[in-house]
């Protein structure tokens, strides 16, 4: 067992544990914080995979902006806890069962049939240099320039949409 693999296993355990923590916490604040931790762990995976740009984007956008927004809304609404109800008592067990089946199925497929059965080299110097980032920018702003611009419009539209939704209705008399 190489050092890489050990490191990977430890990180995976952390990722799974924080995901479960998100799932099981009674308090929504704890859930959000667990999720932040999970996102940071996934960012470390990105670094291991030789994608530093995505790792940084993950931390700033997901762990930073998006989760802060979540925490803000949770606290704004005061919705940390929900009262216990018994609306769908069997849902938990059915969902758990189905999810377990799905996980087994997926693992089975990936371990037996996944096509690119390559291995991932440890991030060496060549991959993690600035040159890599420059190349990424090259691809992003040449080949994918139009999608990139469209994305910016999408963000603008989402922003306007959010404002319109939240805005108080004008009183019409």
């Amino acid at each position: 067992m190489t050092l890489d693999l050990v490191f990977f296993l430890i990180l995976s355990l952390i990722a799974i544990a924080t995901a479960l923590g998100m799932l099981l916490s009674r308090n929504a604040i704890y859930s959000a914080l667990f999720l932040v931790l999970n996102f940071v762990t996934v960012a470390v995976f990105y670094l291991l995979l030789g994608a530093p740009f995505i790792a940084m984007a993950q931390i700033t956008i997901y762990a930073g902006a998006i989760m802060v927004l979540f925490l803000f809304v949770i606290m704004l609404l005061g919705a940390e806890n929900l009262p216990e109800t018994q609306t769908l008592p069997w849902q938990k067990y059915l969902a758990g069962g189905l999810a377990a089946v799905l996980a087994v199925e997926a693992t089975f497929i990936f371990l037996t049939r996944a096509r690119p059965a390559g291995e991932i080299a440890p991030p060496d110097e060549a991959v993690n240099t600035i040159a890599n980032l420059r190349e990424l920018g090259d691809v992003l702003f040449r080949q994918y320039l139009l999608p990139f611009e469209v994305t910016s419009i999408l963000l603008l539209v989402a922003m306007v949409g959010a404002i319109v939704l939240i805005r108080k209705e004008k009183r019409v008399h």
């Binding site: 849902q91 059915l94 969902a95 189905l98 999810a99 089946v101 799905l102 199925e105 997926a106 497929i109």
Partner: peptide, 13 residues
Amino acid sequence: ALSVLLGVVLIVG
């Protein structure tokens, strides 16, 4: 959503 998941499980199966 549960029925969607059921569908996914069946298709993957």
